[in-house]
Design a protein around this nucleic acid. Structure first.
Length: 209
DNA sequence: CGCTTGATTCGC
DNA sequence: CGAATCAAGCGA
């Protein structure tokens, strides 16, 4: 299975990319352990005019430097001093667009992820939430700024077909500080019924394909 | 410098 | 509901 092409990430429309990432597969290969998850929730952060974005007003620091890099790189940062949050950088160099990955469905390497999380994969908060999925997949600061075509951390198309009407759109979470931009419908997630359908499809699949 | 606040999670 | 835990970001 091949990584999504760079052209996927270089496009201007970060909202469209955030929506299209639903159903795609994040895969990590760390110390010979392959783990992966299917993306079920994302948020778009739309550049220097977006008050919720770390890059609002053109703010450029050591932390958010990755956002100013080229699309197709990872932006990983520490939140609340303890959680690593994983973003996909989009658009061209110096246009700081990004998509925050907020939830995945456990797919491959479930035993490895259960060890990292010290939780059973059936636990409701196993990998739903931006800080828990990074822990499950083993994503950390060592992945900040790396290209998503690499073996260690990549996103590919798992051919899970998601229809337009299976995706719900809401305001973003935890961005109250962003004033009126906190109300923008920039969060995308699978409907509950579609989640169940996906879960059902997964239970019939060979985990090692 | 020192103080405040997060793109959060978990346990009580 | 509050603790954990640290680096931006901001004002002095």
């Amino acid at each position: 299975m091949t990584p999504l092409p760079i052209s996927f990430y270089l496009r201007d429309d970060v909202l469209l990319i955030a929506k299209e990432l639903i159903g795609k597969v994040i895969e990590t290969n760390i110390n010979g352990q392959r783990t992966s998850g299917i993306i079920i929730e994302t948020e778009a952060y739309a550049g220097i005019d977006d008050k919720a974005s770390h890059a609002y007003g053109g703010r450029r620091t050591k932390r958010n430097e990755a956002m100013f890099g080229t699309g197709g790189n990872a932006y990983v940062y520490l939140c609340y001093g303890l959680h690593h949050l994983f973003n996909v950088v989009t658009n061209k160099n110096d246009v700081p667009h990004a998509v925050l990955i907020r939830g995945v469905l456990p797919f491959q390497g479930i035993a490895t992820m259960e060890n990292r999380r010290r939780l059973k994969a059936t636990h409701p908060r196993f990998s739903t939430g931006p800080g828990t999925l990074t822990q499950a997949l083993g994503i950390g600061m060592q992945h900040n700024m790396i290209g998503l075509q690499c073996n260690e951390l990549t996103i590919r198309d798992g051919n899970f077909i998601i229809a337009e009407d299976e995706i719900k759109t809401t305001p973003r979470i935890g961005v109250d500080y962003a004033g009126e931009d906190a109300l923008l419908p920039y969060r995308f997630l699978l409907h509950g019924s579609s989640l169940d359908r996906l879960r059902g499809a997964l239970s019939g699949l060979d985990e090692n394909r």
